[in-house]
């Protein structure tokens, strides 16, 4: 650090080392089409998935584009309010809200009829009993408190059904998850099916070809 030469008037005063510069910016956030359609469903206690075409993946919630096709998702499909836990973590710190009792479980849940898990809370079961493969159902807020937010589903709770022993954890859902090196063979783009052309994908790597 170089030596600073100060003018005499500042030689003997306590130097400033930091400064607070508070800043507030006010925005009006608009949700866009896909999100609005999803949340409109929520206000009717329906979980609406969207897809680009009748053969493509069902996304819940859709974010405006099928990320594999790069296409809009105009088709609406109501999915089930029950699903399977595909993975989870147990949270021991108060990250979220103030009402959550610690520990709580944040899980990836594949709703029946959807192709991608959503992240939500699991309650009404001790955290150390949550399992991959566990079947869970949505628990809604009271009707008066339903708002256009995924938080209108308070959490998911066990249905009591037997676990889905065949649950494919993330990446294995479609069996195409072997994105890594198998048998020392370097992967290529052809390892997976191209959703636009239908090309690629091998049985070995679990593609649908």
């Amino acid at each position: 650090m170089p030596e600073i030469q100060l003018p005499a008037s500042l030689a003997d005063v306590e130097p400033v080392r930091s400064v607070r510069t508070p800043a507030q910016l006010d925005y009006t956030f608009t949700a866009g089409d896909a999100t609005t359609r999803f949340l409109k469903g929520i206000t009717q206690k329906k979980i609406i998935g969207q897809q680009a075409n009748p053969d493509s993946r069902v996304y819940v919630p859709a974010r405006g584009a099928d990320p594999e096709l790069g296409a809009a998702t105009p088709i609406e499909v109501e999915v089930a309010q029950v699903g399977t836990v595909t993975s989870f973590c147990v949270v021991n710190l108060q990250f979220y809200g103030s009402g959550m009792e610690i520990p709580y479980t944040s899980a990836l849940i594949m709703l029946d009829g959807a192709d991608l898990s959503i992240m939500h809370l699991i309650q009404e079961i001790p955290a150390d009993q949550v399992r991959i493969g566990m079947r869970v159902e949505a628990v809604w807020r009271d009707d008066a408190d339903i708002e256009p937010t995924l938080e209108s589903i308070k959490w998911f709770r066990p249905t009591g059904e037997p676990d889905d022993v065949n649950v494919r954890i993330p990446g294995e859902i479609r069996g195409t998850g072997l994105g890594s090196w198998v048998g020392g063979v370097a992967p290529t783009e052809l390892t997976v099916r191209n959703p636009r052309t239908g090309e690629g994908g091998t049985a070995e790597f679990g593609g649908e070809g």
Partner: peptide, 27 residues
């Protein structure tokens, strides 16, 4: 019926000044 809502981005940033800018602020 596109949904919209206020979004407020606010933080009391604390900035370290280093010696030169610090001297300006001291001044």
């Amino acid at each position: 019926e596109i949904l919209s809502a206020p979004l407020i981005i606010e933080y009391p940033f604390k900035r370290t000044t280093g010696p030169i800018i610090g001297a300006f602020l001291t001044g």
